[in-house]
Design a protein around this nucleic acid. Structure first.
Lengths: 146, 146
DNA sequence: CGCTAATATTTTGATTATCAAAGTAATTAG
DNA sequence: CTAATTACTTTGATAATCAAAATATTAGCG
């Protein structure tokens, strides 16, 4: 690997830990102190609309159905998420956010918005496209190896 | 946020989960099945040279000293890490990798090398510099908010 | 129709990850 | 030389995770 490649690798690793840590800190400063970073990500994966099933959310988060189920139990207890049994197929559970969950969702989105904005600061549109291309490369690599 | 900004955000989130998951899978295929992804990252943070102290490693990983200490207990038991008490100051513990730990370290580095390479595929040197600049922006944002 | 398969989710038991706070040991400051 | 500080470890509690077993529902097929 080139020195620059090594540097980029190291920066990715550093940034990775820092993002998670900062998210954690932001939560503890907010009205949603009772959530962990994992729970925030679960709420984020469920999203604003009552569409996704349990297994879809588990797949998006790359955890087993059992892990998600336990986590959803906690989020239901804390009043962020609700379970909605499908009318068509009673095995299927659709996950939705409560009023409180949607509030949390919007707060976290705004954090991400700020982060992405700073990520792209000082780049012109063409350059932003390049960054997106690099991300697509990476996603392609990940899909290939999965 | 622009549609492109939103897309980049979504891609970052997806890539984030996929990287961790792929790392997890790669471990389970290797001779190091007894390690979790967190333990791999701890080994990675310790690195190849017996220099870093416990608290330096804890800071790099953004965990408390207590959390690290528990994790190091497990890694010592599994023969990946060794504790080396400093001669100068007997309170200080330097962390080092065992032969087995160094083997693991190199395997994980090669995974990262591949990943970064694919990340930068098809970009010319100037463009790579741009990606690095975006990462610097992000790190700056994170430092500012910490 | 009536079994058998398959599918979607939940529960359970075991391990790891995590923090805050208390504990231990060594060094530094006054 | 004592008190305060520093570096680390232990402890107790809770969350996160998986694999495997359990539950409930639907689909397939003779």
């Amino acid at each position: 690997m080139t020195p620059q490649g090594q540097r980029i690798n190291d920066k990715l690793v550093a940034v990775y830990n820092d993002i998670v840590h900062l998210e954690e800190i932001e939560i503890k400063k907010s009205q949603f102190k009772d959530l962990s970073i994992k729970e925030i990500h679960t709420i984020n994966a469920i999203g604003m609309y009552h569409r996704k099933t349990s297994s879809e959310v588990a797949q998006a988060l790359k955890v087993t159905p059992g892990t998600l189920s336990v986590s959803i139990n906690n989020l239901v207890r804390k009043d962020y998420v609700e379970r909605l049994r499908s009318d068509d197929d009673h095995r299927i559970i659709h996950l939705g956010l409560t009023r409180r969950g949607r509030l949390m969702y919007r707060l976290h989105q705004s954090f991400h918005r700020q982060m992405v904005q700073s990520f792209l600061t000082g780049l012109d549109p063409q350059e932003v496209t390049l960054v997106e291309k690099a991300l697509d490369n990476l996603q392609h690599f990940l899909d290939e190896h999965a």
